[in-house]
Write a protein that binds this DNA or RNA. Structure first.
Length: 657
RNA sequence: GCGCCCGUAGCUCAGUUGGAUAGAGCAGCGGACUUCUAAUCCGCAGGUCAAAGGUUCGAAUCCUUUCGGGCGUGCCA
C-alpha cells in the first residue's frame, strides 16, 4: 500500500475530465512540508487555473467537489492561492496498519510490471588489495540490488572483476622469481598477496627513482615560472587583475601538487633503499616494469605456462577477496570478469568496423561519436583492446544472455564521459531498447577535504578500514555498557559481536545516507555517533523496542496475531503511525532515482518520530491493557520497519546495545 | 582551451525533480534522568541558498553571465 499512489488514483478521473494528460498534474500531489497544511498537498490547481483561464481556487473547488475520497481523508481544505490540503483519516490509518502488521512485507506490494535489471557494481581488480575506492560502488550497488529485488523486480547482480590485467603479469613475474614454494603450498593466498605487494613495490620504486630528476626539474621550472609571472604581474601593475590572479593561483597549486608528488616518490625510493634486502632485489630486477608487461602480453596471447598459472592463481585471489564480501554481506549472482569477454573482443571490433561505425585513425580503431571531441578507441595501435572494447562486448553478452530492461553501472563520476560514449556507441550498434544508466557517485574525502588517503599518500585498505570501524564500535559499545544505571549487561563476546554489526553498519550507512552524486567527508566519529542520521541511531531505536519487549516479557507472535485494534490518541502516536505507512513511498523513490539515501532519510524520520513517541507515550505503563497493546504494536511495527529498511541497505540490527 | 559536476547555518550534509515561513546532525546556549536504554529528548540561537540578471502566480531547484572549487579531456581502468 502506497498512500501517494492511492491518492493519485483518486485524483486521476477528476483531472482526466479537465485535461488530456493528467500524469504531469498527478506528480503535484506530495507530502506536506508543514503539518498545518495537512498530511498531503495537491498543487495542481494553480497551473490548471492558468491553463483553463479560471481562478485557481475555483479550479480547486471543482476538483474537490468531484473527488471521491471520504473513506480515506477528512474534508479537503483549500488554502492560499489554491493548494488542496488533505488529512488522512485516523480510522483509515489504523485499518492499514492492522493489515501491514499481519504482513511479512509490512504491506509493501510488489510492482505491477517487474523489470529485469543487470546491476554492475564493485568490480575490483583481483589480486590487488581492495581499498576505500571500492566501498561506494559495492555498498550502493548492493543496496540497489536488495531494494529493487524486494520491490519485485528481477535483478542480476554482476561483479565485473578486473581479472585480466597487469596485476596478473605482476604475480606471474613474482611467482617465477620470488616465490617461496613452501609458503605458497601452505597459504597460497598470503603468498600471492605478498608477491603482488613486492612486485608492485619494486615497480613503483623504479618508476619513482627514474622520475625523480624530472620531478625536481619540473618543480624548479614551476618555481621559476611562478617568480617570473609574479614579477611580470607587478611590473604591469596587474596585482588586482582577476585573470592574472587566477593564473597565479593555478601555478601555485601546480607547484604544491608537484612538491607533494616528489615527496611521495622520494619516500617510495627511501623505503626500498633503506632496506638492504629490498635494495638488492630492486637492483637485480631493474627491468621489472617491462618484464611484467611482457608476462601480461604473453598471458593475453595464449602462452601456455602463463595461462596455466593464471588458472591456478585466480581462485586463490578471488578467495582472498571473499573475506571482504563476507564481512559486508554482499553476494553476486554472476561474476563475469574481463577475462570472460576476452575471446569476444576481436569480433566486437570487426562488427563495428563492418557496419561502418568504427574506423582506423592514427593507427587505432576508433568510433567517432557525434557530440564528442575525442574518439571512443576500441583497439590500440599496438593491436591491444581496451576497456571500451570489453564494455561493449559485455553489453552484447548481457543482451543476448538475459535481455534485460536496464543495465546499471555503479561506478564513480570520473568515468561519466566514458559511459556517455559507451552508451552512445552501444545504441548505434543496435542496443537501443535497453535502459543504460551510469549510477555515478562522488569521492570519499578525508577530514582535510581531499581524497581519503593514508598519511603516506597511499589508498586506504578496505580491510583495515573495516577493522578500524569495528574497533571504534567496540569502544563505543563498551563505554555505553559500562555506564548503564544497573551496571554492565554485556559479556565481552556479546560486545564484540555487537561491535562487528555496529561497525560495519556505520561504514555502510555513512555512505548510503549521502546523496550519492556528492563527495562526502569520511569520519569515524560522525558515523558512529548516536545522534543524527547514523546506522547506530537506527540500531539503537530498534534495540530500545526490543528492550521494552524483553522487560515486559512480550510474546511478539501473540501480539501480532491478536488483532487488537490500534488506538491513535496522542499526536505522537499519529505522527508515528502515518510515518510507518510511508515506507513504500521511500522505497519507490529509491527505485526511481536509484538513490538509497531516500531510504536512509525515511528511516531517520521514522526513528525521530519514534523517539518523540517513546518520550511521551509510556508503553508498558500505559493507561489500561487496550492502550498498552496498541502501543506495543506501534513499537513492533517501528522495529520491523527499521529492520527491513536496514536490511534493504545491507545492514543488520542487534537486540541489545 | 573544451566538457561534466558542484557551491545551502561556524562544521558535516539533506532538500521528494518548480510549491506555502529553506531543514537535520554536530559545535554553542538553556532545560529534562527515584522513569520502558539520558548512547536519549525538548527549547533557543544560527541563512543575501556563491553573486547578478532572467523565465512565472511561485525559484535553492529552470535559463544566461560572473566568481570560486572538483573531475575528465586520443591509445590506463
Amino acid at each position: 500500500m502506497n498512500i501517494l499512489s492511492l491518492l493519485k488514483k483518486r485524483f486521476y478521473p477528476v483531472l482526466a475530465e479537465l485535461v488530456s494528460d493528467p500524469d504531469v498534474l498527478l506528480e503535484m500531489i506530495r507530502p506536506s512540508q508543514d503539518p498545518k497544511f495537512g498530511d498531503y498537498q495537491v498543487n495542481c490547481a494553480m497551473p490548471l487555473g492558468k491553463q483553463l483561464g479560471k481562478p485557481p481556487r475555483e479550479v480547486a473547488e471543482e476538483i474537490v467537489a468531484q473527488l471521491q475520497i471520504t473513506d480515506l481523508c477528512e474534508d479537503p481544505e483549500i488554502a492560499g492561492p489554491g493548494f488542496i490540503n488533505l488529512r488522512i483519516k485516523n480510522t483509515w490509518i489504523v485499518e492499514q496498519l492492522m493489515k501491514s502488521g499481519a504482513d511479512k512485507r509490512l504491506g509493501i506490494v510488489r510492482v505491477d510490471t517487474p523489470r529485469k535489471f543487470v546491476i554492475d557494481f564493485s568490480s575490483p581488480n583481483v589480486a590487488k588489495p581492495m581499498h576505500v575506492g571500492h566501498i561506494r560502488s559495492t555498498v550502493i550497488g548492493d543496496a540497489l540490488t536488495r531494494s529493487l529485488r524486494f520491490l519485485g523486480h528481477e535483478v542480476i547482480s554482476d561483479n565485473h572483476l578486473g581479472d585480466w590485467g597487469t596485476q596478473f603479469g605482476m604475480i606471474i613475474y613474482g611467482f617465477k622469481h620470488f616465490a617461496i614454494k613452501s609458503d605458497y603450498e601452505r597459504q597460497p593466498v598470503d603468498e600471492l598477496s605478498r608477491l603482488y605487494k613486492l612486485v608492485n613495490q619494486l615497480i613503483e620504486y623504479h618508476q619513482a627513482k627514474a622520475g625523480l630528476a624530472d620531478r625536481e626539474d619540473h618543480i624548479l621550472q614551476l618555481e621559476q615560472r611562478l617568480n617570473e609571472f609574479s614579477k611580470a604581474m607587478e611590473e604591469a601593475g596587474r596585482q588586482k587583475d582577476k585573470k592574472a590572479k587566477k593564473d597565479r593561483r593555478s601555478l601555485e597549486s601546480q607547484l604544491a601538487d608537484a612538491r607533494e608528488k616528489a615527496a611521495l616518490a622520494k619516500s617510495i625510493v627511501m623505503t626500498v633503499e633503506s632496506d638492504q634486502a629490498l635494495a638488492t632485489l630492486a637492483a637485480k630486477h631493474a627491468e621489472i616494469g617491462s618484464a611484467v608487461l611482457s608476462e601480461t602480453a604473453k598471458l593475453h596471447s595464449g602462452d601456455e605456462e602463463n595461462r596455466q598459472l593464471w588458472h591456478e592463481f585466480l581462485p586463490h585471489c578471488r578467495a582472498d577477496m571473499q573475506r571482504i564480501y563476507d564481512r559486508l554481506g554482499v553476494v553476486f549472482n554472476v561474476e563475469h570478469g574481463e577475462s570472460f569477454y576476452h575471446e569476444q573482443l576481436e569480433s566486437v571490433v570487426t562488427s563495428l568496423v563492418t557496419r561502418g561505425l568504427a574506423r582506423e585513425s592514427e593507427g587505432a580503431i576508433c568510433m567517432f561519436l557525434e557530440g564528442f571531441k575525442a574518439p571512443f578507441i576500441i583497439r590500440k595501435k599496438d593491436g591491444a583492446f581496451l576497456y571500451a572494447t570489453t564494455d561493449l562486448a559485455t553489453i552484447q553478452f548481457r543482451m543476448l544472455e538475459w535481455e534485460p530492461d536496464a543495465i546499471l553501472y555503479v561506478v564513480d563520476h570520473r568515468q561519466s564521459e566514458h559511459f556517455d560514449k559507451l552508451f552512445f556507441g552501444a545504441r548505434q550498434w543496435g542496443h537501443n531498447q535497453v535502459e543504460l544508466t551510469h549510477i555515478s557517485f562522488g569521492t570519499v574525502l578525508g577530514e582535510d577535504g581531499k581524497p581519503f588517503k593514508t598519511r603516506s599518500g597511499a589508498a586506504v585498505g578496505l580491510e583495515s578500514l573495516l577493522d578500524e570501524a569495528v574497533n571504534k564500535a567496540l569502544s563505543v559499545v563498551s563505554e555505553n555498557d559500562e555506564r548503564k544505571p544497573n551496571g554492565p549487561e554485556l559479556k565481552i563476546e556479546e560486545r564484540q559481536r555487537i561491535a562487528a554489526v555496529v561497525g560495519h553498519a556505520a561504514i555502510k550507512y555513512a555512505d548510503l545516507s549521502h546523496n550519492r552524486t556528492s563527495d562526502y567527508v569520511f569520519s569515524y566519529d560522525k558515523m558512529m555517533a548516536l545522534e543524527g542520521n547514523t546506522a547506530t541511531y537506527m540500531q539503537y531505536s530498534y534495540a530500545r523496542v526490543q528492550s521494552i519487549f524483553a522487560r515486559g516479557h512480550i510474546d511478539v507472535d501473540a501480539l501480532r496475531t491478536a488483532g487488537t485494534p490500534l488506538e491513535i490518541a496522542h499526536a505522537a502516536e499519529r505522527a508515528l503511525a502515518l510515518e510507518l505507512l510511508r515506507f513504500s513511498e521511500a522505497l519507490q523513490e529509491v527505485a526511481t532515482d536509484y538513490r538509497p539515501n531516500h531510504l536512509t532519510n525515511y528511516l531517520f524520520e521514522l526513528a525521530k518520530k519514534y523517539s518523540v513517541f517513546f518520550e511521551h507515550c509510556p508503553v508498558l505503563k500505559a493507561d489500561g491493557p487496550q492502550q498498552r497493546q496498541s502501543r506495543l504494536r506501534l513499537c513492533d511495527l517501528t522495529a520491523r520497519t527499521i529492520q527491513l529498511g536496514l536490511e534493504l541497505l545491507g545492514i543488520d540490527v542487534v537486540d541489545r546495545m
